[in-house]
Amino acid sequence: QVALSRTQVCGILREELFQGDAFHQSDTHIFIIMGASGDLAKKKIYPTIWWLFRDGLLPENTFIVGYARSRLTVADIRKQSEPFFKATPEEKLKLEDFFARNSYVAGQYDDAASYQRLNSHMNALHLGSQANRLFYLALPPTVYEAVTKNIHESCMSQIGWNRIIVEKPFGRDLQSSDRLSNHISSLFREDQIYRIDHYLGKEMVQNLMVLRFANRIFGPIWNRDNIACVILTFKEPFGTEGRGGYFDEFGIIRDVMQNHLLQMLCLVAMEKPASTNSDDVRDEKVKVLKCISEVQANNVVLGQYVGNPDGEGEATKGYLDDPTVPRGSTTATFAAVVLYVENERWDGVPFILRCGKALNERKAEVRLQFHDVAGDIFHQQCKRNELVIRVQPNEAVYTKMMTKKPGMFFNPEESELDLTYGNRYKNVKLPDAYERLILDVFCGSQMHFVRSDELREAWRIFTPLLHQIELEKPKPIPYIYGSRGPTEADELMKRVGFQYEGTYKWVNPHKL
């Protein structure tokens, strides 16, 4: 086992960053958080920038500027975001240094004079007029057009580079997404736009490419001749908990499936790229999406959770019991969808996408189930092999396979070949997804960000279904809070070829 401390991990990262040409360590950078008073800024962006600063992973002359409508001070920003920093008493001095680099400007999102004030403020910072500028839009999409237009007109660096990070949702359907994309691309070049999907920053999602293309053993079996089906799962054990009003506007397909799960599907299904260059990788992902037809209604199961009468606390409440959810809402909190990649490698292999709230566990994984062994000599005792990439929690890679049961006879039983990170790298604290992705933006690497043509294809696949749901308002199937979801989803999976045995229990190697 390799035991690495946080300091050692960050030392390795620093070495990698400083050796590259793309990370300008000594240049002045300004990180501007648009929507600095909001939840995302408070819980994710400010803490992430602090962790990067604490670990010495930001360029040395980096300033952080918050911008929002609320009249706040840096002290206010500190008060609301610091509880999420997880700072230790030993880091007190470092924390003071961090907040000394912070400033805040209040202004409207659609007022040109406010942006001119913001620009004057940035120019007044040390070497601010020639600094590289990175704008993070932690804002609702309704203000994107006004904000990007004003940034472009008043706040661009004339000497350094300018980059803009856009948070999902990128529209509600193909038409609104196209409108937003066309607007942003009329102001910024594609190499300046970073559409963030934080799932692409997760260690195991990034590991998929290495697993596939750096190991000879997987190449020959990664196709329709050997793989019976692919299941991509995202499960949350909690409901909307008072935030249903926002969720109800989008629903589970827009929230998770059309982005996170579809991105994971691309990494499983794509061909080997010409290189690890950002556009070479994204070219292959677009090719996969172009091979997927629009979702067919007979390959869809929609569910909505109801309270568990035997549960406790939140578990007793259904989705419609959330006071922020519109009365009688038919918005799905669970969806199972089957897609097919219609190309030579994957023809006929079902890709089953499942996601839901208020389920029995927290889990995100990719599961490849292989065909049955031909010419069975073990009297149907063999179960199908599976390769599982567990994204969260407890990152893991393992192969479910058959071995001989101890004893006199040739009785096979299920076991696993474990390729888990935790076994080799004991207690290594890896940077989280937002840390990686923000560092990628500083480096100018777009590999783990969504390109406009990729986004367009993703919406093309799901828009007809979303429009049909909005028009017909089908009643989702009720499922109990804390269950596996509607049984109809299991029946759909069985119908397209997935075999669920229920006889195997994964042993978490992190707890051995």
Rank of each mutant, 00 (worst) to 15 (best):
R327T: 15
G375Q: 13
E294Q: 13
E435M: 08
P412E: 11
G328N: 13
V341P: 05
D432W: 06
T403Y: 05
K426D: 10
G502E: 13
G348P: 02
A433Q: 00
Y500F: 14
G311P: 08
A269E: 03
G444T: 06
L302V: 09
L465E: 05
Q446P: 04
E284W: 04
I477P: 11
D376S: 09
Q258G: 06
C355A: 12
V450K: 03
G375P: 10
H371I: 08
I477Q: 14
A335G: 14
R354K: 11
G502V: 07
K404S: 00
L339I: 09
R456Y: 08
W346M: 02
V373D: 08
A274F: 10
K405C: 12
F498V: 12
V286F: 08
Y398R: 03
R390N: 14
A315G: 15
V256P: 03
V281A: 08
M270V: 06
E314S: 13
Y398I: 03
N259L: 00
E342C: 13
Q446I: 10
G311D: 11
M401S: 04
G311W: 08
E284D: 07
A358W: 03
L387P: 01
Y479M: 00
E395D: 15
N259H: 01
K426I: 07
E365S: 08
V325Q: 04
Y421N: 01
A336Y: 01
L419S: 05
A269H: 03
I389C: 12
Y340T: 13
R345W: 07
G407R: 04
V397M: 11
I253W: 01
E342K: 15
K400N: 03
Q296V: 13
E470Q: 12
K363E: 07
R456Q: 11
T420P: 07
V373A: 09
G375I: 06
E365Q: 06
R384D: 00
P431N: 12
P476K: 02
L471G: 15
V341T: 04
D310Q: 10
C382F: 13
V288N: 07
G328Q: 14
G311F: 09
K426E: 09
D310H: 15
Q296I: 13
A269L: 06
Q446K: 00
S452A: 12
T420I: 07
R367Y: 04
E472F: 11
V450Q: 06
V397L: 09
E365N: 05
Q263W: 01
R460T: 08
L430W: 08
T316H: 12
L320T: 07
D490E: 08
L439F: 11
L492H: 05
A269G: 13
E344S: 13
Y504S: 06
S275M: 05
K363W: 00
E344V: 07
N308V: 08
K357V: 01
K405Y: 10
A489D: 03
I480M: 15
F442S: 14
D347F: 09
G328I: 09
D255F: 03
R460W: 05
L471C: 15
M408N: 04
T403M: 14
L353T: 03
T276N: 10
L417V: 01
I389K: 02
V388E: 03
Q468W: 11
G311S: 10
L262R: 02
K473V: 10
H379Y: 13
A489K: 04
N360E: 08
Y500H: 14
R436W: 01
E284T: 07
G348S: 09
K494A: 13
E472D: 13
H448Q: 08
H260Y: 01
D321M: 10
E413D: 15
E294R: 13
L466H: 02
A335R: 04
K363H: 03
E294C: 14
R254M: 05
V288Y: 03
P326C: 06
E501W: 10
V341K: 00
T487K: 13
W506R: 01
E470C: 09
R362K: 09
Y305V: 07
H448K: 13
E284G: 10
A274V: 15
T333L: 02
A336S: 15
A458V: 02
R451G: 04
N423Y: 10
V373H: 06
S329F: 04
K429C: 12
D321S: 11
R495K: 14
Q499I: 12
M408Y: 15
T420Y: 05
Q468R: 13
I292Q: 02
A396W: 02
E413M: 10
C266R: 00
V268Q: 03
D490W: 06
P474W: 10
I352P: 00
N299E: 14
K505R: 09
T324G: 14
Q369F: 01
G307S: 13
K505M: 09
E365H: 02
R495S: 12
V256K: 03
V496K: 11
R484N: 01
Y481I: 08
M270T: 06
T316L: 14
G303Y: 04
C443T: 12
I253M: 13
F449G: 05
L437G: 00
L437A: 01
M447V: 12
E271W: 00
M447D: 04
L265R: 02
D322T: 05
A269C: 11
R436F: 03
F351L: 05
T399A: 13
S278M: 02
